[in-house]
């Protein structure tokens, strides 16, 4: 269970990106965060694993306060939180396999890992993860030889290597075309359903959010605008979240 309490983030230049945000995520939820560009979605997700330092507030994962963790503790907590990025964040010149194994770095012996040595079971785990996302045959290709959708699946496999309790996904499909978006989200959904991994995912398109979310949170200018079930977002709510002029765009 993840609890966010009064989370506020003010950037050095004075931008208030998150303003007193509080909510709780139950295990096994597929929580989608929506909101306009600049509303603070990325900031929220990155505060959770402290890629960004929150200004104030608490983030408690299974009873452990992430905001109070020491650097060593933080690394241990981060192992339990997988992350998927908008631009995949793969090392393009490295092989797919090596990129996936990198997801295991928080577990393995740090010195051996610097020499590129991983335990056998981690390699097997990597094969399984790649099989799960359907790109095992590309394991020894260079990452930049893959298409965008395939690269994001590598990103998912990498996150799977951590055996996370919580998976953060920051606009995982906004660099992809609609059809590929669905295939990638399907894999995330699979992980959520079959492995019981809690997912927090920011998405741009409401239609996508509706399809996959078990619950939706909307942000506007750093404040929580909405917290509820996908069906509850009607035209009225939509206008509140996205502004008066916004038109609903459907992605099928």
């Amino acid at each position: 269970m993840l609890e966010i309490k009064n989370l506020t983030k003010v950037y050095d230049d004075g931008t208030v990106a998150l303003d007193n945000v509080s909510f709780t995520v139950q295990d096994g939820e597929f929580l989608v965060i929506i909101g306009l560009s600049g509303s603070g979605k990325s900031t929220l997700l990155r505060c959770i694993n402290r890629l960004i330092e929150p200004t104030s507030g608490q983030i408690i994962l299974d009873g452990v306060d992430i905001t109070a963790a020491s650097p060593a503790e933080l690394r241990r907590i981060r192992r339990d939180i997988g992350m998927i990025f908008q631009h995949f964040n793969l090392v393009k010149r490295s092989t797919v396999m090596r990129n996936v194994l990198a997801g295991r770095l928080g577990y393995v012996n740090p010195w051996l890992s610097l020499l590129g040595i991983f335990p056998k079971e981690d390699k097997e785990r990597a094969w399984k993860a790649l099989e799960l996302v359907g790109i095992a045959e590309k394991a020894y290709n260079r990452a930049d030889a893959l298409s965008g959708g395939q690269q994001q699946r590598v990103g998912i496999a990498r996150a799977l290597m951590q055996e996370p309790k919580l998976l953060l996904a920051d606009e995982p499909v906004s660099a992809l075309d609609p059809a590929t978006s669905h295939s990638v989200l399907k894999y995330i959904e699979l992980i959520n359903r079959e492995r019981g991994v809690t997912v927090m995912c920011s998405l741009h398109f409401l239609s996508l959010a509706r399809t996959y979310a078990t619950r939706i949170i909307a942000l506007k200018d750093g404040k929580m605008m909405f917290d509820g079930l996908p069906e509850e977002i009607d035209d009225q709510r939509f206008k509140e979240i996205y502004g008066e002029e916004a038109v609903r765009v459907e992605v099928n």
């Binding site: 690394r75 990025f85 995949f88 990198a102 770095l105 928080g106 577990y107 996150a159 951590q162």
Partner: peptide, 19 residues
């Protein structure tokens, strides 16, 4: 990006540099 990904996965600074 890739450095961030490794830090997010719980890797340390040296691992982020090497990988």
């Amino acid at each position: 990006g890739p450095m961030e990904a490794i830090v997010a996965a719980g890797g340390n600074r040296l691992q982020a540099i090497v990988y």
